[in-house]
């Protein structure tokens, strides 16, 4: 086999060293720096973009936090205003109610007094009417004409007896 013929060994070894060294220099000094640089550059770009994205995300989150805080504050304020207005509303309402009920009580008192007066008057005139009626009835039934004082006395006595 030609593989085991030592006459070609020196030439093979020499050209192996020459070509391998040449390829090594090409790879080391030319290929790796050029490919490695662009790959590093791309990696850096991707990393930068990711970093920027993370920064934007943090900003958005802080904005959301601020917004939520403002929202909570506004809610609390609205609740306070509502409570305050409710209280003042109730106060005025109570005042008015008090006023109205006072007036009503007064009117009721006046009314009751008027009613009592009217009833007294009615009762008074009732006795007169009863006396007149009794006088008229006595004239028609018995043909006697009692004195007005007497009939009035009799009615009063009867009313008193009834009331008891």
């Amino acid at each position: 086999m030609p593989q085991f013929d030592p006459s070609s060994f020196a030439s093979q070894l020499f050209w192996l060293i020459v070509t391998f060294t040449a390829l090594f220099m090409i790879v080391w000094r030319f290929a790796i720096p050029r490919i490695g640089d662009v790959m590093d550059q791309r990696q850096k770009m991707v990393d930068d973009d990711l970093e920027r994205a993370a920064q934007f995300k943090a900003e958005a989150e802080s904005a959301i936090a601020t917004y939520e805080k403002a929202l909570a504050e506004a809610r609390a304020q609205a609740r306070a205003v509502l409570k305050e207005s409710e209280a003042s509303l109730q106060e005025t309402q109570e005042a008015r109610q008090r006023e109205v009920s006072a007036r009503l009580a007064e009117e009721i008192k006046n009314g009751e007094a008027r009613i009592a007066k009217a009833r007294d008057e009615a009762l008074d005139s009732l006795a007169d009417i009863a006396a007149d009626t009794a006088a008229a009835a006595a004239e028609k039934v018995a043909g006697i004409r009692p004195a007005p004082d007497e009939t009035r006395k009799a009615v009063a006595a009867t009313l008193e007896k009834r009331a008891n």
Partner: peptide, 8 residues
């Protein structure tokens, strides 16, 4: 013999 051969 360092000839430039077919291998080289």
């Amino acid at each position: 013999d360092l000839s430039f051969t077919n291998s080289a």
